[in-house]
Simulated scan of single mutants.
Amino acid sequence: MPRSPATTPRHGLARVLSKLGACSRSQAERAVREGRVCVDGRPVRDPQWPTSPERHRITLDDVPVAAARRVYLALNKPRGVVTTAADERGRATVYDLLAAAGLPWLGPVGRLDKASEGLLLLSNDTAWAAALTDPARHVDKTYHVQIDAVPDDTLLERLASGVVEGGERLAAKRVVLLRRGEKHAWLEIVLDEGRNRHIRRLLAACGIGVLRLVRTAIGPLALGELPKGQWRHLRPEEVDQLARAAGSAAKRREAWSTQAPVR
């Protein structure tokens, strides 16, 4: 078993693999336990083994692991596609849409369920992704939602004020009626937190069904005219804008929590 110098930063091996962009944290933990990862030529089976990429030679399946170039993608996820690397039921995944691109490993930044569509980010920059998905950061996510009813002001107010469902409080940060028909309507719903199936559960608790759910923006980044099923690289300024959105959202939340009460 390789020995780690006392001066080496104590980052677990699985975390190091993830931060280098070799694979996800869970994939790294599995690979380490399966004996597929070596440090300085010797297999290590402890995912928490303290490792430094600057001091140690790391291989995964006998291939040297080095820092991958950072990749940031925006994908227009179609309905019916799942956000997983593999599906035990053989359903199409978002990775099928990237299969021919020759990209390094990428992880989804958050999730969209099978029936939902729209903007999905993918990246191998795990720190950037973690900031955007951290519940404490409260990064806005905007959705256009077609519902099976014509809402009145009471419903819109209830969606914003929130409900308790399954022991969780669900609420929208903002709800706007976009357009209405005789039986259906489209709402714009903004969330600054992301609970499992948040919008669907919130609407169901109000007796409303969802016909379509499309994520149109994450923070300052809009889906725009990106065709369904297609993807593009984010521009450097877009990557920076999203990082700032996560940071500024956290700072606003911290400021609110430390404000003196109004007397």
Rank of each mutant, 00 (worst) to 15 (best):
A222N: 01
A99C: 04
E34N: 08
T216G: 02
A68G: 15
V214E: 09
E188N: 02
L203A: 01
R30T: 14
W186Q: 04
T84H: 11
G167I: 00
L156N: 00
A260T: 12
D134E: 10
I199N: 01
P2C: 03
R253H: 12
S52E: 08
R57D: 06
A217P: 05
L103M: 08
R91D: 11
R215T: 12
A68R: 13
A249P: 03
K77A: 05
L221G: 00
A243E: 14
L223C: 05
H198G: 01
R197C: 08
G35R: 12
P78S: 00
R3Q: 15
Y143C: 12
L73E: 06
A149P: 02
E237C: 02
L242A: 08
R263M: 03
R30V: 14
S161I: 00
R36Q: 15
G41A: 14
Q259G: 11
R252H: 12
A115G: 13
L106A: 01
R253C: 00
L155V: 13
L234Y: 04
R244D: 13
D148E: 13
E168T: 08
A131M: 07
E165R: 12
T93W: 07
L226I: 11
L119V: 04
T8Q: 02
I208T: 13
R89I: 01
G12H: 10
V190L: 10
P53K: 06
L122E: 00
L202E: 02
A222T: 14
A66D: 05
T83F: 03
K114W: 10
C23D: 12
L223G: 12
V65A: 06
P104T: 07
R45V: 14
P9D: 13
R42K: 07
D61R: 05
R55Q: 13
I189P: 04
V163Q: 01
D140V: 00
E54P: 01
D87V: 07
P50F: 03
V82R: 07
L155F: 07
K77G: 09
R253L: 11
V176S: 06
V163D: 00
P151G: 13
G229I: 11
L98G: 05
K114C: 08
H144P: 04
R137D: 04
D240S: 14
R201H: 12
W186G: 04
R42P: 00
G35N: 08
R244F: 10
Q241A: 15
A31N: 05
A246W: 10
I199Y: 03
A204V: 06
H233D: 05
L20P: 02
V37A: 06
G166F: 06
L20S: 01
L122W: 00
Q259A: 15
P9Q: 11
A217M: 03
D240Q: 15
S257D: 13
E54G: 03
R252C: 03
E29A: 07
P47R: 08
P47H: 09
L20M: 15
Q48P: 04
A185V: 14
W128S: 07
A115F: 01
L103P: 04
D61C: 04
P53R: 06
R70F: 05
Q241Y: 00
T93Q: 06
A217V: 05
P220W: 09
P220E: 10
L119M: 08
P108V: 13
T93M: 07
A92D: 11
R89V: 01
R30L: 14
A101M: 07
R212P: 04
K19V: 03
L178V: 15
E254R: 15
Q27A: 15
E254H: 11
N196P: 01
V150A: 02
Y143I: 10
H56M: 02
K114D: 04
A149T: 15
